[in-house]
């Protein structure tokens, strides 16, 4: 599909702010157009990277669960971790990847809570690894704002 979707969305941002907004009389409408323009800019970035981020996140969480399944003592949690580690993404459609991401994130919450309250020798290391992953994940998902300078 040409022109590229991200190029089109960024073009629309320019049209909204430079061509359409100045011709609007209602302050509320101008504000809405500006917000929509910013969101088009963010969506242009997300369009390009969405599948890549989700596939990476899902695979990293599975690797983390495979590691954790080998060290946690709780049998029920161990089984859940092993099962989740063995899953795969059924499709590269973003909605499908999101569903898998949500299921894995739910288990990550359970694992992190378990590590936080454990006195076992592995707990500090696992907790640190989870935090390192969460920090990296939130950095990777950082949304851009356009520069008007």
């Amino acid at each position: 599909m040409k022109p590229d979707v991200d190029i089109v969305m960024q073009g629309f941002l320019g049209t909204l702010l430079m061509d359409i907004a100045p011709h609007l009389n209602a302050e509320y409408s101008v504000g809405n157009v500006s917000i929509m323009g910013l969101m088009l800019f963010m969506a242009s970035e997300e369009y390009d990277r969405a599948a890549d981020i989700r596939v990476a996140e899902n695979n990293e969480m599975r690797a983390l669960f495979a590691h954790a399944a080998g060290i946690v003592e709780d049998a029920a949690l161990k089984a859940k971790l092993a099962a989740a580690a063995a899953t795969t993404d059924g499709s590269l459609r973003v909605r499908t990847l999101n569903e898998g991401n949500a299921a894995l994130a739910g288990l990550l919450i359970e694992l992190q809570e378990h590590a936080e309250t454990s006195k076992a020798s592995w707990a500090a290391g696992l907790e640190a690894r989870i935090w390192d992953w969460l920090v990296a994940s939130t950095e990777r998902r950082k949304l851009p704002l356009p520069s008007f300078g």
């Binding site: 917000i35 969101m39 963010m42 939130t138 950095e139 949304l143």
Partner: peptide, 16 residues
Amino acid sequence: PVLGFSSWYCTDVHNR
């Protein structure tokens, strides 16, 4: 639109 924007952008900042 401000609800959509705050859910995208502000969630992103506060999570980080």
